[in-house]
Write a protein that binds this DNA or RNA. Structure first.
Length: 844
RNA sequence: GCCGGAGUGGCGGAACGGUAGACGCAAGGGACUUAAACUCCCUGGUCCUUCGGGGCGUGUGGGUUCGAUUCCCACCUCCGGCACCA
């Protein structure tokens, strides 16, 4: 029968091998056919445990880069491993196809954005296929497909109906280069996340999703996230920025207006010596109308409005402000305090107004110094008297209340509670919680995005487009260059519509949605990629979701990952899904650097995956990107390292060729190897490798150590072969078994070449072969290396039988010449024996 | 300032209280070759050495422990997030 197994070619030709297996996988539909919702078809769910393995979908900006390769290889390794462990694996792929880069490229080349996008998608698909990823291509989706964005619009409408969509005027971030507004999450250090331009603040009417309604849920449900990196959770916590405090109502001195403030220090209410309004505060104009201060105040407010975000949020500049000539009454003691306008007070946090307590707040202290306002102490630290003046700085440390009537003597924490109680009893405030998180601004004045499905009716106001009229198709326009208003507004036919509610002549909304909306629910659509009656079906969504393992870049910590969590919560509350979190486990991979910088075209330090695949093969590239170092760390690319990965595959190839064609060798039994310690050692190594690789992939995400373990096994095989020849003279063929084991567990990393080697070794369909489990009997060692320490320093080491009693070990150890020498003239006051490991003598 | 993460050979890194430096890269020596590349073998933290070994070594200083890269405390440095958020 040996004749039916073919001898491997003497050289490993990666291109031949990879093309061959990619064709076989395609022909056999090896990785297709996960259970998904299909129109009118019953779906049968697997009896096996499910596993949804997902990597963040690529943005089709041209081609994939090394970061994608690493991301998708990790997912592929996990998917392969779980599949072979018996799970029903779902591993889909799609494209985040709307967005500015495609549109900008289109503007440059004169092509339609959809043409550019289609071409990029086709290119990326080929690249992914060449890398041999085991993706369920039957479920491939594009967020720019009308059959997809129809449901993006549908979800938007559901949110609109639920009151989670709001159109309102606000000071919003405007990018003068991209000519569109941006969400808070898309502004980094006052600059546009995409193009780096300084962001301006503009007062505009825009569409918002009320993510702030879910601020507390987003915090609380972190408890449901089993295995998210601490830093991502920390970033989200920071971003949401919960702080406990109180809402307190102040009234103007004439009693005409009430102005609420939010404070985290209600305990210091007696220390409020002035009152500040944000320049955008809606009451500001009314308060100063007809007063001599009016023109100074209003021109200050206008100047603040013109400042860029960076100028406005600089913390090091002096605290500017203008007195309004008005006063408010501090409700706790009736004190009349002056009202100023100051640009360090932000309209979109709290209420846009604050009570200033210069004695115990650094910013208020600086403002008071600047403008000669009184400072009043209401907290005394351990060293302070009630009347110790505050001249240098505000006191923000612990202490007891002073100069605060009924709060005097209380600790700060007690005083906060007492003040809140007093406020609610008197109906002028209550304990409350503030969040840093802002509502999600989703409208964009750009072409290549999902049209917001709203009709503006002169009678009914904004009306949602009914389900039956979805999708609102992205219209053709002559010019999609950004002009500060949406290019959709130039299409008269698109614009004119009758109101779905009253039939009157109306006008369509012309803004498109932020592309982060598209990617906030794509992981659900994969479960029903072709379904025409609904975005997905709850039953199957509940079956596959939450995603068991999500993998992507940490740069989405407060963007995509926060938005997707928000969407899932909304869909849950709409009764559309039965879970509250989309991604149970998250792994964030590190970036790949080169020459100390992120790879980018402008720096000219890009290594193209295609080049490496062409030169060394996809398997080498896959192996190398995971061998580089811990998957979570940022790592420097090394051209030499790639060569090392290829060398390893070459060595495995020659070794496999040397033992000749199949059939597969059975796992040897420990008993059969009793007479051959060398073979027993090799068999043991094979079992140890199985155990190591299984836990490194399955539990630790430590891919580089898994690969190193296989390398050790292969090295041992090479040595064994050099010393003992390719075939066992008698007894079980342990070398063959060890090579098979290496090939089998290396499969998730380098699937093509291992399938080829496996076939030559006499096996078939390696992707379906059950993942091996280590033989416990073989793993047990009969010989161990014992280490002898004296006062914790290693003095001797030797081989001994395993499982010896402590007394027997001590007897052996005391006879060792090195030990005798090391203990010479010393008194042993204690000995510690760790079975099968070491002996430590404590001496004087 | 607050919150997270990390500091180990020439380099990427390994070791989840028990042999520090697995695996790989680069380097040096050797074999093969007319030569070179490829490949294979050997060496390799550092200092001392009578070549048997010995001292010192995981950012710094303490602590816990028979024993600490690992646990605890303080500090230093680097990376990331937040930051006029009341």
């Amino acid at each position: 029968m040996t004749d039916s197994y073919e001898l491997l070619p003497d050289r490993y030709n990666a291109t031949d091998v990879e093309e061959r297996w990619q064709q076989i996988w395609e022909r056999e539909r090896a990785f297709l056919g996960a259970t998904i919702s299909r129109d009118g078809h019953d779906t049968v769910r697997s009896e096996r445990p499910k596993s949804y393995v997902l990597e963040m979908l690529p943005y089709p900006s041209g081609e994939i880069h090394m970061g994608h390769v690493k991301n998708y290889t990790m997912g592929d390794v996990i998917a392969h491993h779980r599949r072979r462990c018996g799970a029903a694996v779902f591993h889909p792929m799609g494209y985040d196809a709307f967005g500015l880069p495609a549109e900008n490229a289109a503007i440059r080349s004169g092509e339609h954005p959809s043409v550019v996008t289609q071409r990029n998608i086709a290119r990326i698909r080929v690249q992914l296929q060449r890398l041999g990823f085991a993706i369920d291509w039957d479920t491939e989706i594009s967020t720019a497909d009308p059959e997809y964005y129809r449901w993006t619009q549908w979800i938007f409408v559901k949110m609109f109906e639920r009151g989670l969509v709001e159109r309102r005027e606000a000071a919003v971030n405007w990018c003068p280069v991209d000519q569109t507004v941006l969400a808070n999450e898309q502004v980094l250090d006052g600059r546009c996340e995409r193009c780096g331009t300084d962001v301006e603040l503009r007062q505009l009417t825009q569409w918002f999703l009320r993510i702030t309604d879910y601020a507390q849920d987003l915090l609380d449900d972190m408890a449901l996230l089993e295995d998210w990196p601490e830093r991502v959770l920390a970033m989200q916590r920071n971003w949401i920025g919960r702080s406990e405090g109180a809402r307190v109502m102040f009234s103007t001195e004439d009693g005409d207006h009430e102005i609420p403030v939010f404070t985290t220090r209600p305990d210091t209410l007696f220390g409020a010596t002035f009152f500040l309004l944000a320049p955008e505060h809606p009451l500001l104009g009314t308060l100063v109308e007809g007063r001599p201060e009016s023109s100074a105040v209003m021109s200050y407010a206008r100047a603040a409005a013109r400042a860029s975000l960076a100028e406005r949020s600089a913390t090091d500049k002096p605290k500017s402000g203008v007195f309004t000539g008005r006063y408010v009454i501090n409700p706790i003691n009736g004190a009349q305090i002056p009202v100023w306008v100051a640009d360090y007070v932000l309209m979109d946090y709290g209420t846009g107004a604050i009570m200033a307590v210069p004695g115990h707040d650094e910013r208020d202290f600086a403002f008071a110094q600047q403008h000669g306002l009184p400072v009043r102490r209401v907290v005394a630290g351990p060293e302070d008297a009630a009347d110790t003046p505050l001249v240098e700085a505000a006191y923000v440390g612990p202490g007891r209340m002073v100069n605060s009537e009924f709060l005097n003597g209380l600790e700060i924490a007690e005083a906060k509670g007492a003040a809140a109680t007093w406020l609610s009893e008197h109906g002028i405030g209550e304990a409350t919680v503030g969040y840093r998180l802002r509502d999600w601004l989703i409208s964009r004045q750009r072409y290549w995005g999902v049209p917001i499905p709203i009709v503006h009716c002169p009678n009914c106001g904004p009306v949602a487009v009914p389900d039956t009229q979805l999708p609102v198709l992205l219209p053709e326009v002559d010019d999609y260059a950004p002009k500060g208003q949406s290019p959709l507004a130039t299409n008269a036919e698109f614009l004119a519509v009758s109101c779905p509610s009253c039939g009157a002549d109306a006008r369509r909304e012309t803004d498109t949605m932020d592309t982060f909306v598209d990617s906030s629910w794509y992981y659900l659509r994969y479960t029903a990629p072709h379904l025409s009656s609904a975005p997905f079906e709850r039953e199957l969504a509940d079956y596959w979701l939450p995603v068991d393992q999500y993998i992507g870049g940490v740069e989405h910590a407060v963007l995509h990952l926060l938005y997707a969590r928000f969407f899932t919560k909304v869909l849950h509350d709409l009764g559309l899904v039965g879970f509250r979190e989309p991604f149970a486990r998250l792994f964030t991979q590190g970036m790949i650097y080169r020459d100390g910088a992120k790879m980018s075209k402008s720096k000219g330090n890009v290594v193209s995956p295609d080049e490496i695949v062409g030169q060394y093969g996809a398997d080498t590239l896959r192996l190398y990107v995971l061998f580089m170092g811990p998957a979570a760390d940022d790592i420097e690319w090394s051209d030499r390292g790639v060569v090392g990965a290829r060398r390893f595959l070459d060595r495995l190839w020659s070794l496999t060729r040397a033992v000749g064609p199949g059939p597969l060798a059975p796992r040897p039994s420990a008993a059969a190897l009793v007479g051959s310690p060398v073979s027993l050692e090799l068999a043991r190594r094979a079992e140890a490798t199985i155990a190591k690789v299984s836990s490194d992939i399955g539990e630790r995400f430590s891919f580089h150590t898994a690969i190193a373990a296989v390398q050790e096994l292969v090295n041992a095989c090479v040595r064994h072969q050099a010393e003992n020849g390719s075939a066992e003279a008698h007894g079980p063929d342990v070398l063959r078994y060890a090579i098979q084991t290496a090939v089998s567990v290396l499969f998730p990393f380098a699937p093509h070449v291992t399938c080829e080697l496996w076939e030559s070794l006499g096996g078939e369909r390696l992707w379906e072969v059950a993942w091996p489990t280590a033989d416990a009997e073989l793993l047990v060692r009969d010989q161990v290396t014992l280490v002898v320490q004296v006062n914790g320093k290693v003095r001797d080491r030797f081989e001994a039988a395993a499982g010896l009693e402590d007394d027997a070990v001590l007897a052996l150890v005391r006879d060792r010449p090195k030990v005798i020498a090391a203990l010479e003239g010393k008194e042993v006051i204690r000995d510690v024996v760790v079975p099968d490991r070491l002996v430590n003598f404590v001496v004087k």
